[in-house]
């Protein structure tokens, strides 16, 4: 399957946040979107998910324009967004959060299998399953939202700043898991990150966004060795 945005523009009021952006991601690959603050990275993800309305262009899933669908329908098509800022359901337990992740799964056997899969990826969630999600540490909450998004076996996983505000060792742990996902399942990952070095280390391709436009589009290796990218986003 292929998820793509074609000549997408979007904005908030009179401010244009994205201008003529085209990107794509296929199942089985990891694509990184890097860029500084306010470059439009999160807006791009929110447009794909239908949370932010687009002003022109298309969002296509396997060639079909889905930009007019309401956000919950887009989510049901197998596009799982993990919004920025670790948005767990704080007053539900870890297990209840994961059950919400399986909201669209009615088959109990499938649910148990997915639950086992999530616990396999993040054993910490299994230890904490009776606790309220609001009481978890930041890293555990990030594990929970990723595990929750994976409960329904999505075709595409859209991760918004998973490294934000986490200790380096936790970030490494989480990115190891993300890197492993593509190898073990047929999922396409779109990874939005400010931490360009770590994002490009697990991605196959990458887009660099600046002021709402794609300024670079290349393989991860090429981007990592690009002087401009190095200077602006990796620092040396």
């Amino acid at each position: 399957m292929k998820l793509s945005v074609e000549r997408l523009s979007a904005g908030y009021g009179s401010i244009e946040a994205l201008h003529d952006v085209s990107m794509c991601c296929e199942t089985g690959e990891t694509v990184a979107i890097i860029g500084g603050n306010g470059a439009g990275k999160s807006t791009a993800l929110n447009c794909i998910c239908g949370v932010v309305p687009i002003s022109c262009g298309e969002v296509c899933l396997d060639g079909r324009d889905i930009s007019d669908e309401p956000p919950h329908k887009i989510a049901r098509m197998g596009i799982a967004q993990v919004p920025e800022g670790r948005r767990v359901f704080p007053r539900l337990t870890v297990l209840e959060n994961l059950e919400m992740g399986a909201y669209m799964i009615d088959d109990k056997a499938v649910f148990r299998e997915r639950l086992g899969y999530a616990y396999d990826l993040f054993p910490r969630l299994h230890e904490r399953r009776w606790q309220n999600a609001g009481d978890l540490s930041g890293g555990e909450q990030q594990m929970l939202v990723i595990g929750r998004a994976l409960m329904r076996n999505p075709r595409f996983l859209l991760l918004d700043e998973p490294s934000l505000g986490l200790a380096p060792v936790v970030v490494e742990n989480i990115f190891d898991v993300i890197a492993g996902l593509v190898k073990t399942s047929e999922v396409g990952i779109v990874l939005v990150e400010q931490n360009a070095a770590i994002a490009l280390s697990i991605a196959g391709r990458g887009y660099v966004l600046e002021n709402g436009a794609v300024i670079l589009d290349a393989s991860a290796e090429a981007l990592l060795s690009d002087d401009k990218v190095k200077a602006a986003y990796i620092g040396g």
Binding site: C49, V51, P71, H72, K73, A75, R76, A80, Q81, V82, P83, R87, V88, F89, P90, R91, L92, E96, E99, M100, G101, Y103, M104, V145, R148, A149, R152
Partner: peptide, 18 residues
């Protein structure tokens, strides 16, 4: 649970298809 997920975080609930 769906009601409570709407209470706790609407955006997260939508992203799960609620």
């Amino acid at each position: 649970r769906a009601l409570m997920s709407v209470r706790d975080d609407e955006l997260a609930a939508v992203s799960l298809g609620v």
